[in-house]
């Protein structure tokens, strides 16, 4: 059994007037330490799938096992960073990053120190006492990452973490996140609209199709690219090749719809 086993997930959103099938028969296996990307058009159920993996919503059918246990029982092993940073504006940076530890009663001198070190590693200076409003978008995103990593999740899910940032900040953060996660040997799932970002950061890309949301195709990223930082990868000749093949696949998807 794989580290994370997603088996036959179906999900339908019910409202009074409609039943909207967001995911249909999604099965994915993820190994420990892998960096996975979910790529696909808007509305193909990427956020829904992350919410199901995080145990926030129960799928209509299907199962998810993390280390052989249903995710419901091990939700604190999963770190989930939402589509925006959602730092709490009424808390200081420090209170924000300690939040997960506080809620699970694990806040002590050791975990506190660990978390503040993470903040340092993210290249954030003495910002603990500041309010989120005083930080730039890129800094806030890094703080949100620290908040998610502070609880030492086994698996980290990032929902379009860089989409609201300017291009330069985005490229820098890609490198930072990639090297940090590699250093910790963390398993990660990245949701993105950006083909280039998916190629530069991941080991494997799942391309989703919409209506209903499903896995359309899987791309394994060549070894040469995996060992480079995202920024270096973007300059590699292999990058362009993979980009072309994914691009073609996306075009054919659009054509069929």
């Amino acid at each position: 059994m794989s580290f994370l086993e997603i088996t036959n997930i179906h999900h339908t959103y019910f409202t009074k007037t409609s039943a909207n099938t967001a995911l249909s028969d999604v099965s994915i296996q993820i190994e420990e330490g892998e960096f996975i990307s979910f790529l696909g058009p808007s509305g193909c159920g990427k956020t829904t799938l992350l919410s199901i993996i995080a145990g926030l919503i129960a799928p209509t059918s299907g199962t998810i096992f993390l280390e052989k246990k249903p995710v419901k029982q091990s939700s604190h092993k999963i770190g989930y960073m939402l589509q925006q940073d959602y730092l709490f504006p009424w808390k200081t940076i420090e209170e924000n990053i300690f939040l997960g530890l506080k809620l699970s009663n694990r806040l002590n001198d050791d975990t506190r120190k660990y978390t503040l070190e993470l903040l340092q590693k993210m290249g954030l200076g003495p910002v603990e006492k500041l309010s989120p409003k005083q930080l730039s978008g890129g800094m806030r995103q890094r703080v949100a990452l620290v908040r998610t990593l502070a609880t030492e999740p086994k698996i980290l899910m990032l929902d379009e973490p860089f989409s609201a940032l300017d291009y330069q900040t985005k490229l820098k953060l890609e490198d930072l996140v990639s090297t940090t996660l590699k250093a910790f040997g963390k398993t990660a799932i990245l949701v993105t609209h950006d083909i280039g970002e998916a190629i530069a950061m991941s080991d494997k890309i799942y391309l989703f199709a919409a209506n209903p949301g499903r896995v359309h195709k899987t791309f394994i990223i060549p070894e040469e690219l995996r060992n480079l930082t995202p920024f270096q990868a973007r300059g590699h000749e292999q990058y362009t090749k993979v980009f072309q093949s994914i691009w073609k696949e996306l075009e054919s998807l659009e054509f069929r719809e």
């Binding site: 919410s51 995080a54 939700s75 604190h76 939402l82 959602y86 709490f88 939040l99 809620l103 609880t151």
Partner: peptide
């Protein structure tokens, strides 16, 4: 914003904790 509650839920917060923190 329900997303604040979602953040708390990802940390396994109870309803009482969600109320107090967000």
């Amino acid at each position: 914003d329900p997303n604040y509650l979602k953040v708390l839920q990802t940390f396994g917060a109870t309803r009482a904790q969600s109320f107090k923190e967000a």
